[in-house]
Design a protein around this nucleic acid. Structure first.
Length: 748
DNA sequence: GGATCTCATGTTTTT
DNA sequence: CATGAGATCC
């Protein structure tokens, strides 16, 4: 049976597992996506299950797409009727189909994204006259989101202190606003689905009977609502097949709880456990390093990951003085690898925070090298994109007050604060949402209103346009509607102010237009739903052979022959914010683990002696995670000593050459009540590691390099325990080489 | 109503 | 340092 060929015994057991609850714990690179897709194919083809009776859920659109395409590849066609998609998309479909049973929404409800949510919270806070100076609105939003993840509705939310009392009130108002807008936020999509199933036993039963098999990817990332949704749906047939890895759980801060794995086992007492422990991705050395790191986390079930790719390159540790040296070192290595025939496109540079990409980008730009940056500002959250989408949303749904507020005076059209206040108050009197009000104003010229002639003219001018678009939207495609709006508001003139930024903005609009034009066959509502639920315009461009820059979070699920993880410094990885909490440090370690296990062939880990944070240079300590890796797997020095040393003799790393004398006026504001860093002197003074005090290479020295041939040293500078040698190779040029890595031979 | 200044803030981000 | 939100000024 070809579905089962090429599977190892454990994978085969999983794919062909009998009915009942199945828990597959899949280590990194163990072929979990493969198992999921083969399982679907197996169920359809061998077990004779109708695709219509199956549900497969993922967290990302990308994963869903990949699963769908792989299944159809095996089966030689798309399985018709299968429910396959993200949790959110699946819930939206269900909610729309059952919208007649939703008491507070109609089937055209909109989906509010994070940005919209912020605005709604701000509105709620304003409505309630709450003083925001005492806390950040986002914190309240966070609390609301957490509540929804726990299926706690506004009226069941109970307050136990000041902030939660504020949250309770804002939550209540927030929900009223959403309902008035006929909109759900991301969390609502999940929570309302579970609530609906709980309130409507017949609907629940219908879906329970329908889904004979439920399959779940990345189960460790489920939160409470998602878990509850799954257990409800699986209650009748009990065939729930979940795949996950607690060690790769890195979204705790978003409500994900890998304890759901344990919960699953406790709930489905008859569940079968299958371990996928063979890693097909990394070399033995890399895998061993990663295992040593993750083993430092407590309260976990150890998996015995193994690979038959014995040996391999050692994990290389790179020391750099500061971030730009670090970036240059990375670039140098990439160049060196390229000279060895390893393409730049096989390299990925990973970091903890997005801000770290900047220094890298600078280095790439200065070296005139291309790179690909993953993430950063998401396409659909760019201001101009959201503005334009807000136009579409108001056209589609005149109850959307959030979008209305966004566009009513963008581009400016003489409707200012005073006019707006009056307008909102007037709309409120009539129990209209602003969009409805402005349409009413132009629909009936005899309508009583309190506006001055000037305000009335400005309002109706816009209202007439809006009303025309609403009519148009029923007749023409989304693309044409978009063009019509762009022309009517002269968006290009507004955006493209001649600066580069302005041109980029307009280019983004054109990109959105391109997406819209492709949706010709769909209606506006479907288009808006896509835009809301699709994370980003497919970050394709896999073609370019250039290094990828990405955060450790966004690296999950990917793999690269060469992986750099930079900024391995306490405070960055693990991040400052996590240092006080063991659970959070454990998550940071998992993050590091995820990064390490992305690598197939080579891993480079780098740290700096100093870093600049918030404009101030400070001494740093090599990450505690570095010392988790056994020395025999590492090339590039014993970090343990360095950690000790840096802690005890932090100031000894001050480099007179680079650190400019601190003058009083460059001193930054005093640190807030941050606790003093816990830098206690170790009880036993460790012997100092020999620090290189003298350069091994001197200017004028003739050397030989395996790739570049013979050359002459121009200069050599010390970088702690290593030295960086600049060598001129005739006919090639000047190369900066790290002495311990370059394997230079002394000539003469 | 719009431009300009000041001050606080500073992780990660599947949908 | 760099960015964004709110206040203030024109």
């Amino acid at each position: 049976m070809e579905i089962l060929s090429d599977l190892n015994p454990a994978q085969r057991t999983a794919v062909t597992a009998p009915d009942g609850p199945i828990l597959v714990l899949a280590g990194p690179g163990s072929g979990k996506t493969r198992v999921l897709t083969q399982r679907i194919a197996y169920l359809i083809r061998e077990a004779g299950i109708e695709p219509w009776h199956m549900m497969a859920v993922t967290f990302t659109n990308k994963a869903a797409r990949e699963m769908a395409s792989r299944v159809s590849l095996i089966l030689g066609g798309n399985p018709q009727g299968i429910t396959l998609g993200t949790f959110h998309a699946t819930c939206v479909r269900l909610l729309r189909r059952e919208s007649s049973s939703l008491s507070k929404y109609d089937s055209n409800f909109l989906i509010f994204d994070t940005d919209d949510q912020r605005r709604v919270v701000a509105k709620a806070i304003a409505d309630l006259n709450i003083d925001t100076s005492r806390f950040q609105p986002v914190r309240i939003l966070n609390n609301i989101s957490k509540a929804k993840n726990e299926i706690v509705t506004a009226d069941r939310y109970s307050a136990y202190n000041y902030i939660s009392e504020v949250t309770r009130r804002v939550y209540q108002r927030y929900q009223e606003i959403l309902i008035a807008n006929n909109a759900m936020d991301f969390d609502d999509l999940l929570m309302n689905t579970v609530l609906l199933l709980d309130e409507q036993p017949t609907i629940l039963e219908r879906y329970q009977r329908r889904y004979e098999h439920i399959l779940v990817d990345e189960f460790q990332d489920t939160n409470t609502v998602q878990y509850e949704l799954l257990t409800r749906l699986a209650a009748f047939h009990g065939n729930i097949f979940v795949v996950g890895d607690a060690d790769q759980s890195i979204y705790r801060w978003r409500g994900a709880d890998f304890r759901n794995i344990k919960r699953f086992q406790d709930h489905f007492t008859n569940s079968q456990l299958i371990l996928l422990e063979q890693n097909y991705r990394s070399t033995q050395n890399i895998l061993d390093a990663a295992k040593a790191v993750i083993r430092q986390n407590h309260d976990r079930v150890d998996k015995e990951l193994f690979t038959d790719r014995t040996g391999g390159e050692l994990v290389k540790i790179i020391e750099a003085y500061n971030e730009s040296d670090e970036a240059n070192a990375v670039l140098d290595i990439i160049t060196a690898l390229e000279n060895q025939g390893i393409s730049p496109g096989s390299c990925a540079i990973m970091y903890r925070t997005n801000a770290q990409s900047r220094v890298l980008e600078d280095a790439f730009i200065r070296a005139d090298k291309d790179y690909r940056l993953v993430g950063a500002t998401r396409f659909y959250s760019r201001r101009e994109i959201k503005d334009l989408i807000s136009y579409l949303r108001v056209v589609y749904s005149s109850t959307d007050s959030v979008s209305f507020a966004r566009i009513i005076n963008t581009p400016t059209r003489g409707i200012g604060r005073k006019t707006l206040d009056l307008f909102y108050a007037w709309a409120d009197q009539h129990h209209w949402q602003p969009g409805e009000a402005i349409l009413a104003l132009v629909a009936d010229s005899d309508l009583q209103h309190p506006f001055s002639a000037r305000a009335y003219s400005a309002l109706t001018h816009f209202g007439k346009k809006l009303s025309a678009w609403v009519e148009l939207s029923k007749q023409i495609t989304v693309g044409d509607l978009l063009d019509s709006i762009l022309a009517a508001i002269d968006f290009r003139t507004y955006l493209d102010d001649g600066t580069e930024v302005g041109q980029d903005r307009w280019a983004n609009i054109m990109q959105l237009r391109g997406v819209a034009v492709e949706y010709e066959e769909h209606d506006l509502g479907q288009f808006l739903e896509q835009v809301a639920l699709v994370s980003d315009v497919d970050n394709l461009e896999d073609s370019a052979d250039v290094p990828t820059l990405l955060t450790l979070h966004s690296a999950k699920g990917l793999e690269f022959p060469v992986v750099f993880i930079i900024g391995l410094v306490d405070g960055t990885l693990p991040h400052n914010r996590s240092l006080s909490d063991g659970e959070e440090i454990a998550e940071e370690r998992r993050l590091f683990y995820v990064g390490l296990t992305r690598a197939k062939e080579r891993v480079y880990l780098s740290y700096t002696f100093r870093r600049t944070s918030y404009g101030e240079s400070e001494v740093t300590v090599p990450s505690r995670f570095l010392s988790d890796i056994p020395l025999d797997l590492v090339a590039g020095g014993d970090v343990r000593h360095r950690r000790q040393q840096t802690v005890t003799k932090a100031s000894s790393w001050d480099w007179p050459a680079s650190s400019s004398p601190r003058t009083p006026e460059t001193r930054s504001r005093p640190r807030k009540q941050l606790p003093e860093p816990n830098l206690r002197t170790p009880r036993t003074e460790r012997p100092r590691t020999p620090i290189l005090t003298e350069a091994k290479y001197k200017s004028g020295q003739n050397v030989h390099h395996s790739k570049f041939g013979d050359g002459t040293v121009i200069e050599s500078k010390l970088t702690g325990s290593d030295e960086e040698v600049s060598v001129a190779f005739p006919g090639i040029g000047v190369k900066k080489l790290v002495a311990s890595m370059a394997k230079l031979e002394m000539k003469d």
